[in-house]
Each structure stands twice: as structure tokens, then as C-alpha cells.
Design a protein around this nucleic acid. Structure first.
Lengths: 166, 166
DNA sequence: CTAAATGCAAACGCTTTGCTCGAAT
DNA sequence: ATTCGAGCAAAGCGTTTGCATTTAG
């Protein structure tokens, strides 16, 4: 609230994040909190859920409400900037849309998420849809895996494995 | 409450449903409502959500609470009798576990769900996991498709397309 | 200046749970 | 008789929304 945080005075503060640029391109009104959220998401290398984004945003500048994060994340999704993912467990996760088509392998022991893409799978998916009499308009592939027993899994990680991904 | 509904007097009422048999095998206590829910699920050829099950159960005998449906469905899942599916949209859907490994194609216009299985995909999934350094312990494949424009889709069916599937 | 975004708290939809009463074994 | 299930209503969790205030363009 005082001078230390310096809300949004100098626009030359820091270079616009990738998402911020995309927002401007699309003519979205850029508020301080949108810029903040845009940065958090641009910098994210994982698949944060809304609360992750909220926490990281607070850590950077502190003055966003979770409602705004929800609204912004939805706005970005509607504008094709973000993609909403559903890995089960209630929370929605997000990642940049322009990272291209990819799927996920979830390490069931650590909760870590690995991205991958595969041509062969794309082709197979299309073939399967066709065989069933449909045009493929979307797909979702998730693999759940476990590292082959090298060391005994120390922490089965129950609630909220989130966080680290990639 | 009165004689019309005849709660659970004669055990010879009707032959036990498949799920009821499985429950008995596993030594689960069989109450009237469990028998009822077991029948609804055994007869279901689609992927009902809890409320579907609840409604169908009420239609058959009327005297179950939705809490019991939730509890029973969870019990059955924990006993490997049911599988919980998440097709997005908040509601969990269920189907018999012993229908074997299969995947789903969701008709995005009608919400209808088509099941299919594919050897080639299974093999590919295993290969992908291996390539990433994991043992495959689970997978989820969903295709979203649209019938090639033969007739214009009459009802885009937004909320709760549920119901018919297969 | 005007339309739109934010914050806050209340509302929401699905699911779970605490507690008491009733039923299954 | 004893243990476990059922019913009901309240609570929980992630997400959305109404409304008054602030802000971007």
C-alpha cells in the first residue's frame, strides 16, 4: 500500500512478458494485475493450477485477488493464449497454448508431469476416429508411469503432488 | 414406508445383478439400497454420473439418498468393480470395470460416448512410456470427434448432454 | 468520460462427512 | 448383540458471480 511496492507507475518497469504481448495484440485492456498474471504464466515452465498462479503472483507484487486470477485465466483461455488441462483431482491446470500439441506422462510416484509429442500417435488417433465414423476435433492422451525400480519410491506423495512438473 | 413399496422382505424378489454377485464374492454387506444401486449399474449401458444413478434408482424403488449413492459408488470403485471416469465438466462418470480396457470417443455435438479398444494403441502407449524412461501403469485416451457433415447438427447440446452414451 | 476490471463475499455445483437411527450378519 | 450402512443436513473444495469501487483507454 505504501511506496515500497510501487504499484504501476513507470511503464518501463520491466519488458513485457510474452503473454502480455499477446494480450496487447488482441486488444485486451492491460491492468497491473493482468500484467502480473501474464508474467507468472509466461515464466511458468510447469502446469500451474489457479492457486499456484495466485501464490506466485502474490510473491511478485502482492495485490491480486484469487477471483481476478480465475477471471484472467479464463480470459486468456478464451483468447487462445492458454490451454486448460484437466489431470484429475479437481483442479484445472494451465499452460501456454503455443507450446504446440503435446501430451503428458504423469509420474505416479512424484506427481511430476512430463510433456511429449508423437507423430505416430497423432496419426493413429486420426485413424481411430475415422474408423469410428468421426472427424477428429480434439484428443487427450495421458500416460501414467513409474520409474523402473532403481531405488524404492520414498514418498508416495498423496495430496497435491503439483508444483514441479515440466 | 407402507406395504406398497415392500422394502426388502422376500430375497427371492429378483435374480441378483452381476454387481450384486461381485459384492457378495467380496463379502460386502448387502443392503436393500446397495442391491438397488448394483442393479442400476449392472443394467447401465452408458457412463452414468452419480445423479443418473440416483434418478434411476429412485425410479426403481424410491428410497435411497444421494449420499448413499456416492458412498456406494465409491465403495464399488475401491473394490475394483466400477471405474471412475472423468470426461470433464465436473461430474464423475462410472462404468463396469470388467468391460475391459477401452477408451472413449466423445461426440462433441451430442455428448454421446463411444467406447473402443485398440491393440496398436496399447502397444504404442507402452513404447512411449518406455522411451521416456517409465513403466506404464495407466493411461487415458479420449478422442473428441464430430460426425462428418451429413446433416447439419440440430442441437449443439450444451449442458449435460449425458444419458445415452455407449 | 465511459466501459471494463478488481475485490470481496456470497453463491454454486459436486462430493464428502458427522451424527443418529436402523438394518445385516 | 454388535457392527456397519442409511439418511439428513451441514461442511468442503474449486470456481463463479453480484455489486460497489477503481482504472484503462
Amino acid at each position: 500500500m505504501d511506496s515500497r511496492t510501487r504499484p504501476r507507475a513507470t511503464p518501463a518497469e520491466s519488458p513485457p512478458s510474452r503473454i502480455e504481448r499477446l494480450c496487447i495484440e488482441r486488444g485486451l485492456k492491460m491492468t497491473g494485475q493482468r500484467r502480473l498474471i501474464a508474467r507468472v504464466l509466461s515464466d511458468a515452465e510447469d502446469h500451474p493450477d489457479v492457486e499456484d498462479v495466485y501464490r506466485r503472483a502474490l510473491a511478485l507484487d502482492s495485490k491480486v485477488s484469487i477471483a481476478t486470477v480465475y477471471r484472467t485465466v479464463r480470459l486468456l483461455e478464451e483468447n487462445g493464449i492458454l490451454e486448460k488441462r484437466d489431470f484429475g483431482g479437481g483442479r484445472a491446470r494451465y499452460d501456454l497454448a503455443d507450446r504446440g500439441h503435446h501430451h503428458h506422462l504423469i509420474d505416479v510416484d512424484s506427481g511430476r508431469v512430463i510433456e511429449f509429442a508423437d507423430e505416430e500417435f497423432e496419426a493413429l488417433a486420426r485413424r481411430l476416429a475415422t474408423r469410428l465414423g468421426f472427424d477428429l476435433v480434439g484428443q487427450r492422451l495421458e500416460l501414467f508411469g513409474r520409474r523402473p525400480a532403481a531405488e524404492p519410491p520414498r514418498a508416495p506423495a498423496r495430496r497435491r503432488p503439483s508444483g514441479t512438473g515440466t
